[in-house]
């Protein structure tokens, strides 16, 4: 291929990415305004909360329980080899989980389970022309389909993150007591948690819970063809949502460190 062809191909890809970015921005804006439009069917938000929350809670509880235990055992072992003072194990663990691990790991799991579900449902509606039928019925698909999922993700994202913190901290405390003989009153100490940690954790949860349904809904709305198109949309939703979570984590943590010095 000649240099001109390479440049043309690169330009074409850049233009395609620009168009996709603008479509995503439009869908995001319409979905957010759709939250106030109340166009969705009666009870849809509650149904979505059940799908996002109840159906994810066991998955998240098991993952966070094991993660909490493994992290305490690993970090406790390291501390034991260096100083032997485990008094800060629980407080630092809690601080780290509130600010970083609980929102991010919970969001990554939601991106996998909920994001894939949203993309598959919206994508199959797209390829079977149900989205077109909605438009002809005078309904904006973003208000009808994505807005209730956005509300559900925002609400249940918080609930699941709190559950994740409680389970991981509890499992960590039990394993610290079982493996290192650490007194639970020493481990279950929240004195190191600052309002900054809670604020950063909350901001991350809000941003992740907004990004997942919007990106997944966008992937579903962009589905083309038949079942293969739905499969592609589902894969793109999981990859796109997961990537967005990690990128937002980096940006929010970076801003927190730069502006507030990490709350220290």
């Amino acid at each position: 291929m000649s240099l001109t062809t390479h440049i043309e191909a690169l330009g074409s890809k850049a233009a395609g990415a620009g168009r996709a970015g603008s479509r995503l921005a439009i869908i995001a804006a319409k979905s957010m305004s759709g939250v106030f439009a109340r166009d969705s069917p009666k009870g849809e938000v509650a149904r979505q909360m059940y799908i996002v929350g109840n159906k994810s809670v066991l998955f998240i509880a098991i993952t966070m329980g094991f993660l909490g235990m493994v992290m305490v055992i690993q970090s406790g072992g390291q501390i034991n080899r260096v100083t032997g003072d485990l008094s800060q194990l629980g407080p630092q663990f809690l601080k780290l989980f509130i600010q970083e691990f609980a929102p991010t790991i919970t969001a990554l799991m939601l991106a996998t389970r909920v994001g894939a579900g949203i993309a598959a449902e919206v994508g199959s509606m797209k390829v079977t022309e149900q989205i077109d039928a909605l438009r002809l019925s005078g309904i904006t698909p973003t208000s009808y389909l994505i807005a209730p999922r956005l509300i559900a993700c925002l609400f249940m994202g918080f609930v699941l993150t709190v559950i994740a913190i409680v389970i991981a901290f509890s499992a960590g405390g039990v394993s610290a007591w079982g493996v290192f003989g650490l007194n639970p009153t020493v481990f279950f100490d929240s004195s190191m948690v600052r309002s900054y940690d809670i604020a950063i954790g909350s901001i991350k949860t809000i941003c992740y819970s907004t990004a997942i349904p919007i990106i997944s809904g966008y992937c579903g709305l962009e589905a083309r063809g038949g079942s293969e198109g739905v499969g592609t949309a589902t894969t793109s939703a999981v990859i796109g949502s997961s990537f967005a979570v990690l990128l937002l984590d980096f940006i929010i943590s970076g801003i927190g460190l730069t502006i507030f010095g990490g709350g220290v």
């Binding site: 069917p41 077109d132 039928a133 002809l136 005078g138």
Partner: peptide
């Protein structure tokens, strides 16, 4: 929107909403 009130369409796959 006003045009869509005057022109309806019956799609190939019926496109009824399963939840209703």
């Amino acid at each position: 929107y006003p045009i869509r009130k005057r022109i309806g369409m019956v799609f190939q796959h019926a496109t009824l909403f399963d939840s209703m």
